[in-house]
Write a protein that binds this DNA or RNA. Sequence first.
RNA 1: GCCCCCGUAGCUCAGUGGAUAGAGCACCGGCCUCCGGAGCCGGAAGCGUAGGUUCGAUUCCUACCGGGGGUGCCA
Length: 571
Amino acid sequence: MARTPLIDPVLADLDVRLRAALVAAGLPEADPDLEKPKQADHGDWATTVALRLAGPARRKPREIAQLVVDHLDVPEVVAEVSIAGPGFVNVRFAHRYHEDLVRRVLTEGTRYGHSQVPATERRHVNVEFVSANPTGPLHVGAGRWAATGDAIAELLSATGHQVTREYYVNDAGEQIRLFGESLVLVATGGELTEEHYRGHAIVEVAEQLRATHGQELFAVQPEDDGEAGRAARVGVLGVEAMRQRIQDGLHAMGVDFDVWFSEREGLHETGAIEATIAELTERGEAYEAEGALFLRTAEHGDDKDRVLRRSDGRPTYFAADCAYLRDKWSRADQLYYLLGADHHGYVDRLKAAAACLGVPPERVEIRIGQLVNLLRGGEPVRMSKRAGETIDLDEVLEEVGSDVVRYHFLRQGLDTTVDFDLAVVAAQSMENPVYYVQYAHARIASVLRNADERGFDPGEGDDADLSLLTHPAELALLTAMAGLPLVVAEAAELRATQRLARYAEELAGTFHRFYTECRILAPASGDADAPGAEVAEDPALGRARYHLAVAAKQVLANALALLRVSAPERM
RNA sequence: GCCCCCGUAGCUCAGUGGAUAGAGCACCGGCCUCCGGAGCCGGAAGCGUAGGUUCGAUUCCUACCGGGGGUGCCA
């Protein structure tokens, strides 16, 4: 199990003290493993170390817990240490901890929630995602990979890793010739067969090419050396045009890649594929059989050996995969692949390829996401590329907006199949959880505007008497706000965007409850019985709540920023 | 056949060894002379089945049942 990252200095200190207590009590060494209790009244943090030591120490858990507590050098920020249940050691912070937190959030601003993994775990992570074939527009399902890959990249970056967002463009091989042939047929009024690409985007790209290069582009040229050459020539241009459309569409969603890696330019034309095959052969990982060249992937966990070079001498697509992996490894030290479930068969061979190339398997991380069911009013929408019936990501983005699309995908784990119902997402969009979170942010912004208009003087955050924040709703909000750094660290570690999304929802809810129960600005009426009169009576309380709200707004904004969802001032 | 994913509230999903399993939607009942009711409070409702590991299992293992996807010298 991954240890809870002790990125919070207070927790790190507590961790050290707990370890010291174990030693002082003559108990076996163990990881204190601090965790957050589900129940708020169990305290701020808890450790199960006594439960886990019961076996090795051959004593009752509660006795061990008592020993730990007796030997613990309790730090100043801890108000109370108690033993509960079968042997939990619960820790409750002093109020000062919460006061410090508000100041910390205000000081760190947009950086609050970010952290640094230990230097030994810091990586340059190449995050490859989407990588859909540039032979057609992106469909809605690709939005899931776009949103997820982008947020993962953001999380990794926020935890101290260096990140490269990369899109692999499959712009080589048979499909490009076929794509070019499709364009030629569309442009010259020829008849498309079953195997050809079609759809409105193909027509548009054909028209675009005609507008740029003229109709003669689609005629066989002397240098084409026949119709296949013409198809390839047109295909290269068409693919680039389609790729640009994809790039623009992703940009509209706020997803921008650092590297658009062309298979043709980066692997075929540079000779990288041949070089990779040569290296694999040199390493003794390849062998000839039946006229073809095989890679010994079966020795590294794959079902069977895979062909690198066909008997006719052409390298396989898999050979390009190997070359690409090798190229990425020369530019990064951790490779993250985000693939759809339709590619799960690639996992073993890709990891085997890495092993054959001498890349440590743990540095090649392949995540499989389940596919997206596109529905309209509960009825499945066919996503057949051939018939051109796909629903483009662009259309959906235009209809419901990037925030809704991104959040819808990010709040669910990768291994659940996501239903994307256009009717639900578009028509009932006000019920989308993303609005719940954004509303909390906009609501705070609204209060701050009102305060400004009324000439409310909040003073400096440092001067505010934050010790006045003792209402249960205030304490709950403070506790929730304190959670962001750990949530970010865990979400990054687990590559689990839904952790952060659910946290944001929880935080928003905590704020809404605070807002309902605790008035920030005194009511305009001055009525002593009006709700919020306590604020009018104690202006210092109003100032403290004001700074709490500012800090809460910051935390919400930071959580949304990591998901790359907007945090609006107004809705 | 083999491989992967899923099965938690009526529905959509959180919860990757700990205490009383959480949200949203839907349903029932409350809350605006007051900072945004896109909100808040309360109610009813659940871990597919059977074993195993463990002090402790929704979580890990095995089998079974149910649903989804994959399985090419295609690209």
